[in-house]
């Protein structure tokens, strides 16, 4: 039995916007074992980013954790004080964001900014030790040393994203979250960075989450996948289970929406309808209005997450194929 690094239990996070309550995350529970990478997949409004931000406690001020418990590396994240949190964030665990270009100051050299970030957490290190560590980090993310002397605008999107990964690895974290970390990049660069992340994760034996809207990206990086829809966990299983034999109708629809390199013109399949209004409390299956196999029952009860064949699905019609 492997250690459990992250344990999220019954987590609900709401936003307050213009007097309305947006139910961004509702009753989400899952565990991540040591050495595993779990992908959180969902479309816009699924709550995947809110979930990630809650785990490292970087929520905006209008968000509130309504219920739940998060245990990360033995810390009870939600009850830690802000000061204690600051001590362990970036050190025990860290995160790589999508919009990395804004993260660095445009008027200072990359190397100085990285060194400053490092000094802030390790005040006893000497100048030389810091430079050694930075050089080592750059080698890890496949960047030449001369980027230390460059300004952020001189670097391409892919290089910046590699810097951000280096920055996240600065203090030897055990747990790392990639939040759409390769989304804005070109296909080839994205592919390269994914390969690099794969080998990094293996050599540093990291545990973590990959948040993405792209099933392809997640399937490259993760052992397990959590599928979210409208703030709820709809399915959780191994990557192979989710991609080869999805059980939840939403996951099935999502997998079928992906165009393969098909030879001839044929219609794409998708999921008709739109995301439900997240400001309304729901007393039914959230996916029911778009679901092809929904019955009367689905519009009356909220399905609970049931465990079947070593995976979890929240659907009353579990296993039903379309």
């Amino acid at each position: 039995m492997k250690n459990i690094v992250l344990d999220v239990q019954d987590l609900s996070v709401h936003y307050r916007i213009n007097k309305k309550v947006i139910r961004a995350v509702e009753d989400v529970s899952f565990k991540v074992e040591e050495g595993d990478f779990v992908g959180i997949v969902g479309e816009s409004g699924s709550g995947k980013s809110t979930l990630a931000h809650t785990i490292i406690r970087l929520l905006p001020t209008n968000a509130m954790v309504v219920s739940g418990r998060i245990e990360l590396l033995g810390y009870d994240v939600l009850s830690l004080g802000e000061e204690d949190m600051r001590k362990i964030r970036w050190k025990e665990f860290s995160m790589v964001f999508q919009k990395s270009l804004n993260a660095l100051s445009p008027v200072h050299k990359v190397g100085n900014q990285l060194a400053d970030a490092m000094k802030a957490h390790n005040p006893n290190l000497t100048e030389e030790e810091i430079i050694d560590r930075l050089k080592q980090l750059l080698r890890m993310v496949n960047l030449p040393e001369r980027v230390l002397k460059a300004y952020p605008h001189q670097l391409s999107g892919g290089m910046m994203q590699r810097i951000m990964i280096a920055l996240a690895l600065l203090n030897h974290p055990k747990f790392i979250i990639f939040d759409e970390a390769t989304t804005a990049l070109d296909v080839v660069t994205q592919g390269q960075i994914i390969e690099e992340i794969k080998s990094l994760v293996k050599s540093l034996s990291l545990t973590g989450l990959v948040i993405s809207h792209d099933l392809g990206v997640v399937s490259e990086l993760c052992d397990e996948i959590v599928v979210m829809y409208a703030g709820r966990l709809v399915e959780h299983g191994t990557t192979e289970q989710i991609l080869q034999q999805p059980l939840h109708p939403y996951t099935q629809g999502l997998v079928r929406s992906l165009p393969d390199f098909a030879q001839e013109k044929k219609k794409l399949s998708g999921i008709p309808g739109n995301l439900p209004d997240l400001s309304q409390p729901v007393h039914q299956c959230v996916f029911a209005p778009r679901c092809p196999i929904a019955t009367e029952e689905c519009f009356k009860t909220v399905p609970s997450t049931e465990e079947i064949d070593g995976r979890r699905v929240a659907c009353l019609k579990v296993g039903a194929r379309i």
Partner: peptide, 20 residues
């Protein structure tokens, strides 16, 4: 080779890295 796909996993072709 780099298009992320859930279907056939393709052999990645290594490309040269671009410098600064």
């Amino acid at each position: 080779s780099y298009s992320p796909s859930i279907f056939k996993k393709r052999e990645k072709i290594n490309v040269k890295k671009l410098g600064v």
